[in-house]
Design a protein around this nucleic acid. Structure first.
Length: 583
DNA sequence: GCCGTTTTCGGCCCGACTGTTTTCAGTCG
């Protein structure tokens, strides 16, 4: 079993225990362990196979949960999970997803009315069978009908680029409201998480009620879920939920810290504060009992109050950043100015829409020293992939172009490259005669996504073993919200990358962000270089590098961990060495 | 169920809003 599967089972145990009304802290332990497991950079299987001590020392995983992990790894089952599922029907998980229905109500509806599905819930609400139950009323029935309706339309999660554009729209709208001094997005968007479930907005306003009213009146709003004195929640027409909190200026830093999260980071931070006799909430830092500390204006104040330096939002996942901050070993965040070029760019020869000259100009305008032209190979027919003849012609064209650049005194170079398909049998989609003339070969999987895990892993490793691949592009093939990653053993792929000196791509396209944050961190720990590339199909796409940089930060990558922070000379040396080592 | 500068028991982050209640539970983030 893989980490994600084991984590899922712990999440389910937590939900089942919660419905049964078990101890809150025990439930939290399962949730916490699940989240910790999702952030691990080694598979539990590998750790377990190391022997007794392998699973020791994982924070939040004690004796009980360790035993369950061992049980799942050896038998593929978890008796506690199985037992709970015998007590409670699996349909209750769906009922729990209905907004406004929590574990207590799910259980009440199940016990009193036998409701085990969303459909049954809606029917019960429509036939007014619910309001007779204790704690339920007519309003509850109306809300259930509405929540079930929106459940159907809501798409799971939104990608970052979409989230950013909504946040900008709301920000512009609120800033037009008199008395609104400042509006910022917090939450997972500010942490640059690869996908967002909702938007958290903060605002400073003299009259909170005016800001709340303006928020509810935003033209994109479909439903107002709640509207209080300082807080409101709405659902946009697109299905995205947005929360707004209105605050006073002197609490803005504390609120930013609080609402940026993650929840796990905040719990750990507040626990730390508590041990120091302090209390942190969204209004500031307080010395018990109750009196105010001057630590609410900036986030730095909040962190300083518990003896920590400011922690970049991208790292706030309780994956060791608090300990690292305490010990002064936070990673130095990767910056845009560290990036010297882009190693994955398409032209109109395949499925891009820009010419060599246009891309060259756009890249120079960004201050780059190089970009690699990496059009598709022929296997990607829909993208008008290049066969050997066209590839050779492009090589000649790039050589000629570089000659002209040189003659004009520009310190910029186009690298000859290709995004060559790793075919289903692991062979490459260009002949050696073409590959040997390229500066930078990007290998990628674009078909046959439904292979078994073993077959896909073998296919990719065989591709790398050819010795031609400098960078493995979008290594898991995921498209956020559209397509799951293909099944692949990333530990094995990284093992091969390390042996062959292959870099792994962090594809900056907001729908991809592949490698993800945890995979980036895995690469760093294993000493594998990451290429932060854009996979641009137009000059505008070069700007997507921003998404890649923030995702790299989430993966703790520093300048030295990234291949394309190297200057041209050093880059070419590394690219050449990879080939020589591999062949 | 986890954890320890309060260490093997007794804690465990904190607050807003809603709908149902006559003082608060449930839900959410």
């Amino acid at each position: 079993m893989e980490n994600t599967e084991i984590a899922r089972i712990f999440h389910e145990i937590a939900e089942l225990l919660e419905m049964k009304g078990e101890d809150h802290f025990r439930i939290r332990s399962y949730r916490n362990a699940a989240m910790v497991i999702e952030g691990l950079t080694e598979s539990l299987k590998t750790l377990y196979e190391k022997g007794e001590a392998g699973l020791d020392g994982i924070p939040g995983v004690g004796k009980g949960i360790r035993a369950k992990i061992a049980e799942m790894l050896t038998t593929g089952r978890c008796a506690v999970h199985d037992g709970l599922l015998k007590e409670l029907p699996a349909g209750l998980f769906d009922v729990l997803k209905v907004g406004g229905i929590g574990p207590k109500k799910v259980m009440l509806l199940y016990k009193e009315l036998g409701i085990t599905s969303v459909d049954a819930l809606r029917r019960a609400a429509e036939s007014h069978a619910i309001h007779a139950l204790p704690g339920m009323g007519e309003k509850t029935e109306e809300n259930i009908i509405r929540a079930v309706e929106s459940l159907k339309k809501v798409s799971a999660r939104f990608n970052l680029a979409v989230g950013l554009s909504y946040a900008e729209g709301i920000k512009a709208h609120l800033q037009k409201t008199p008395g609104v001094a400042r509006v910022e997005a917090a939450g997972s968007l500010r942490r640059w998480k690869d996908s967002i479930g909702d938007l958290d907005m903060l605002c400073i306003a003299h009259k909170p009620e005016d800001a709340i009213a303006a928020f509810a009146a935003y033209p994109g709003v479909k439903d107002v879920l709640s509207k209080g004195g300082t807080k409101s929640t709405v659902v946009l027409k697109t299905g995205l939920q947005v929360d707004l909190r209105v605050l006073k200026e002197d609490a803005f830093g504390a609120a930013m810290q609080y609402f940026t999260g993650s929840k796990a980071h905040n719990v750990a931070l507040r626990d730390m504060a508590k041990r120091k006799g302090l209390k942190i909430n969204e209004y500031g830092v307080f010395k018990e009992p109750g009196d105010r500390w001057d630590a609410g204006k900036t986030e730095e104040d909040v962190y300083r109050s518990v003896g920590l330096p400011w922690i970049p939002p991208e790292l706030r996942e309780n994956r060791g950043e608090i300990e690292a901050a305490a010990e002064g070993r936070l990673p130095a965040p990767l910056e845009l100015c560290d990036i010297r070029g882009d190693l994955h760019v398409h032209t109109r020869e395949s499925d891009g829409n820009a010419t060599l000259a246009e891309l060259s100009e756009a890249a120079q305008a960004r201050g780059y020293e190089y970009i690699a032209i990496t059009d598709h190979s022929r296997a990607v027919g829909v993208a008008h992939g290049l066969d050997e003849k066209r590839a050779m012609a492009q090589i000649e064209a790039i050589d000629a172009f570089n000659e002209r650049l040189k003659a004009s005194g520009r310190h910029f170079r186009l690298l000859k490259g290709a995004e060559v398909d790793i075919r289903a049998d692991g062979t490459l989609d260009h002949a050696d005669e073409v590959l040997s003339r390229l500066d930078c070969v990007v290998g990628a999987v674009h078909s046959g996504f439904n292979m078994t895990r073993e077959a896909m892993t073998g296919r990719i490793i065989k591709g790398m073993e050819s010795g031609w691949i400098n960078v493995l592009a979008h290594p898991t093939g995921r498209l956020i919200g559209v397509r799951e990653p293909y099944k692949v053993d990333m530990e094995a792929v990284m093992g091969a990358a390390k042996r062959h000196g292959t870099a792994l791509e962090l594809n900056s396209y907001p729908e991809r962000l592949d490698l993800n944050d945890v995979h980036c961190r895995m690469a760093r720990e294993r000493g594998i270089l990451v290429a932060v590339s854009t996979d641009s199909h137009s000059t505008a796409h070069l700007g997507n590098i921003t998404f890649g940089i923030h995702n790299a930060r989430r993966g703790w990558l520093e300048k030295n961990d990234v291949l394309n922070t190297r200057g041209l000379k050093e880059l070419l040396r590394i690219l050449k060495k990879t080939r020589q080592a591999g062949r």
